[in-house]
Amino acid sequence: MTPPDRSTAWIDRVNRELDAWLPTADARPAPLHAAMRYAVFNGGKRIRPQLCFAAGRVLGLDDDEVAPIAAAIELVHCYSLVHDDLPAMDDDDLRRGQPTVHKAWDEATAILAGDALLTLAFGGLAHAGLPPTVMAGLADAAGSAGMVGGQSLDLAFEHQAPDTELLEAMFRGKTGALIRAAVELPARLGPADPAHHEALAAFGDAIGVAFQVVDDLLDVEGTTETLGKPAGSDIEQGKATWPGLNGVEAARARADALLQQAREALDALPPGPSRDDLAALGALIVRRSF
């Protein structure tokens, strides 16, 4: 499965939006702003913004309308990685093959850079004049009922083994909430068919869980060179993972089942190239390792 033809243009579009939102690296305080830009422009694949643009196209929106949402979601994602890498969390030295922010600068700068990226996400949406429901949706996805809550559960599971149902509930928060938001929030820009809105949310939910199942598989089967971060770190830290609970083959089967569930959700959307692009991105997420 190859990326949609529009992927390169979408990555370029969100990068231009992010560049416009972020302070220049030499603006005072320069170390903080340099660290923020380092965290954002470090080779990320922009999966969430691509999903956002693809969902927007399905809804008949143009890329400029969707760009602020795509940028805000990516800023929240980047902030979460900066904090996730800290010694108090996963204590990782590498991210996308480069030193993590707390290694390239220091822990205090990394904390502040993450704080500033999160704040900028909501400030950017406000300055773009987007509806309050968009900001509320992102807040729900990023907060204690979503990504932050999922991360809290992930840390708790280092000391208390969950069952598969509880593990996937953590996945839906830690990873899935922001992916679901990427495909669901564009529907809040204007009147969308409720069935289409529901279909996008269901697609995002399935792909979000599948993303983390595959991430767990990559930790088992990948290398530090291919992952751009330490391989085997989840096992080393005693984290609960899907293959750890159920085995590698069962994890692959679960990822396949979630991809099929996502494809079925798309059946409620109008057929055409835009829906095909969204389906292709979902397949790329699930097939990125096997």
Rank of each mutant, 00 (worst) to 15 (best):
T8L: 14
W10G: 03
L18V: 06
T24P: 15
A25K: 11
A27Y: 10
P31K: 11
A35K: 07
R37Y: 12
F41S: 01
G43I: 02
I47W: 08
I47N: 03
F53L: 06
V58K: 05
V66I: 09
A67R: 09
A72H: 08
E74P: 11
L75E: 00
V76L: 14
S80T: 07
V82P: 07
H83Q: 07
D85C: 09
L86A: 02
P87Y: 08
A88I: 07
D90F: 14
G97Q: 00
Q98M: 08
H102C: 05
W105S: 08
E107P: 11
I111N: 04
A116S: 14
L118D: 02
F122I: 06
A128E: 05
A128R: 14
G129R: 14
V134D: 03
M135Q: 12
D140H: 14
A142P: 12
D154M: 05
L155H: 07
A156N: 05
H159A: 11
E165V: 10
L166D: 07
M170V: 02
K174Q: 00
T175A: 12
A177G: 03
L178S: 04
L178I: 03
I179H: 10
I179W: 12
E184G: 06
E184L: 05
R188T: 03
P191A: 08
A192T: 15
I207Q: 09
G208Y: 11
V209W: 15
V209H: 14
L218W: 12
D219V: 09
G222P: 12
T224V: 09
L227Y: 10
D234W: 13
D234C: 12
I235N: 07
E236H: 13
E236M: 11
Q237P: 13
K239A: 04
L245D: 03
L258A: 10
Q260Y: 05
A262E: 02
E264N: 14
S274Q: 13
S274V: 03
R275H: 07
